[in-house]
Computed example of a mutant assay.
Amino acid sequence: MSTAGNVQQLQQDLQNELTTANQLLRLISLEVQKIKNLTNPGGEFEENIKQNVSTIASLANIQQINITNLPPVKHLQLDLSQHTNQNMSYEQHDSFRNSMDESQ
């Protein structure tokens, strides 16, 4: 392959990588927006916490428990290393990149 051909192939490879990176950034942006909407004041997360507090207070009242003397809840450290994205995994992104390379 000539030098011009090599340069053209490198340019095409770079364009493919940029296209894939752009699509990944769009997916990340959508996920961040979902998190922001969920955690905004008055959002779903806050409402769930309020509902849980109310439910616990109601249950404590039914059981005649003084909730001011309850021990603090231990915080759990979640291992998200095995978490898979429901939209697209890294392997799917990689196969998408490979299919883009093959189609060019």
Results as ranks from 00 to 15, higher is better:
T3I: 14
T3Q: 03
A4W: 06
A4R: 15
A4E: 11
G5I: 06
N6D: 09
Q8Y: 05
Q8W: 04
Q9F: 09
Q9H: 11
L10S: 14
Q11D: 14
Q11A: 11
Q12E: 09
D13Y: 03
D13K: 01
L14K: 10
L14F: 09
Q15V: 01
E17V: 14
L18E: 03
L18M: 05
T19K: 15
T19I: 05
A21R: 12
N22D: 01
N22K: 15
L24Q: 11
R26D: 11
L27D: 12
L27A: 14
S29R: 04
E31G: 05
E31H: 07
V32G: 00
V32S: 01
V32T: 01
K34W: 01
K34D: 07
K34M: 06
I35M: 07
I35K: 02
N37E: 10
N37C: 01
L38Q: 04
N40L: 06
N40C: 05
G43L: 00
G43A: 00
E44H: 01
F45L: 03
F45N: 00
F45C: 02
E46C: 01
E46M: 01
E46S: 00
N48H: 06
N48A: 06
N48L: 04
N48T: 04
I49F: 01
Q51H: 06
N52G: 04
N52V: 01
V53A: 05
S54K: 13
T55Q: 14
T55Y: 09
T55F: 09
T55A: 12
I56S: 05
I56W: 05
A57N: 15
A57G: 08
L59D: 09
L59H: 04
N61T: 13
I62Q: 10
I62R: 08
Q63C: 15
Q64E: 11
I65Y: 08
N66S: 05
N66Y: 08
I67C: 02
I67P: 13
I67D: 05
T68Y: 13
L70R: 02
P71R: 03
P71G: 03
V73M: 08
K74T: 12
K74A: 14
K74N: 12
H75C: 04
H75D: 10
L76Q: 13
Q77N: 12
L80P: 01
L80I: 13
S81I: 02
S81T: 15
H83Y: 13
T84S: 10
T84G: 00
T84L: 12
N85D: 12
Q86D: 13
N87K: 06
N87A: 09
M88G: 00
S89N: 07
S89P: 00
Y90Q: 08
Y90E: 05
E91Y: 04
Q92E: 14
H93E: 03
H93V: 13
H93G: 00
H93R: 10
H93F: 15
H93K: 07
D94Y: 15
D94S: 13
S95N: 15
S95C: 06
F96R: 06
R97S: 11
R97V: 05
R97K: 15
N98F: 10
S99Q: 15
S99H: 08
S99N: 14
D101A: 15
E102K: 15
E102P: 01
S103F: 04
S103Y: 02
Q104S: 13
